[in-house]
Nucleic acid binder design. Structure first.
Lengths: 150, 150
DNA sequence: TTATGTGCAAAGGGTTTGCCTATAC
DNA sequence: GTATAGGCAAACCCTTTGCACATAA
């Protein structure tokens, strides 16, 4: 279960990452953590705009990048070219509907076992993907020849 | 294990999807299935160009979209804005190195159990994600109100 | 005070599309 | 022969960036 942060907790989290807590950032974070639909930048912008008229989409873009770099949010999927975000950075899965773009959370407990059956309740699963990311052994070793440049 | 298709098999696969087998498409498919590095469009293009000088990047883009729509290849990840592909459409995972963009396959057998340990051998895992995609129940029911338009 | 963040505008860059020719079947 | 695909160029569109002003600490 996703737990919402207090303003103080957000401030602490930002400061720990060397970032300042601005009105814009707090508003965006609050909006993101209050949602279950994994919104894109545009949607966050539209949701926050009425409460801070001066805010621009560009700030939302920059904020999302900052959040992701700080590990405070994740870009969990891309749908029709739009990046989709989640403030829940605990290990869990997602069910993406390729047709409507809806993204549902899959409980972390379902990761690793029986998630296909779990997800079946959400619709028809066409594709199952497990993605791990981090830093590969070659990079950790400071390899000269980057595989991607081969 | 990934099994390569014969030309006849590719033709059958294309025709089954209502597509024609062109020199360009066959070359691209051959290149993709022979690789383990999950190339992007640019890389495929550069690899294929010497063998068919007239080919254009645009054709590679269109071919990859056609392949994905036909279920003959998957867009398995995005790294630095570039879509990355895999001709292996059996259920399996990937390890993406966020630093160099290297993408390794994770055996299908490791999906669902012990994949974190499995991947640890590849480097340092920062993030584990399970993604299922398909069509959600709402879409299957032909719902009028698309969640994404809310 | 002073580095950091925001708003704006303009550029960036991977990808898509329209149009005409070439080609698979 | 006819519908489909390729080549080219231009458009698209999400996203990023440079710059001057505003603001958090």
């Amino acid at each position: 279960m996703m737990k919402r942060k207090t303003t103080a907790q957000w401030r602490t989290a930002f400061n720990a990452a060397g970032l300042r807590l601005t009105r814009q950032r707090l508003l965006i974070c609050r909006e993101l953590e209050g949602r279950r639909d994994h919104p894109d930048v545009e949607r966050l912008y539209r949701a926050v705009k009425p409460r801070l008229k001066q805010i621009s989409v560009f700030t939302v873009y920059r904020t999302m990048n900052a959040l992701e770099n700080a590990g405070l949010a994740w870009r969990v999927a891309t749908w029709r070219g739009h990046a989709r975000y989640d403030a829940n950075v605990e290990t869990h899965g997602h069910f993406l509907c390729e047709k409507c773009g809806r993204i549902d959370d899959l409980d972390g407990g379902s990761v690793g076992a029986g998630f296909a059956a779990f997800a079946a309740a959400k619709g028809t699963v066409h594709r199952v993907e497990v993605k791990l990311s981090g830093e590969c052994d070659a990079c950790l070793a400071g390899a000269r020849a980057l595989p991607q440049e081969a």
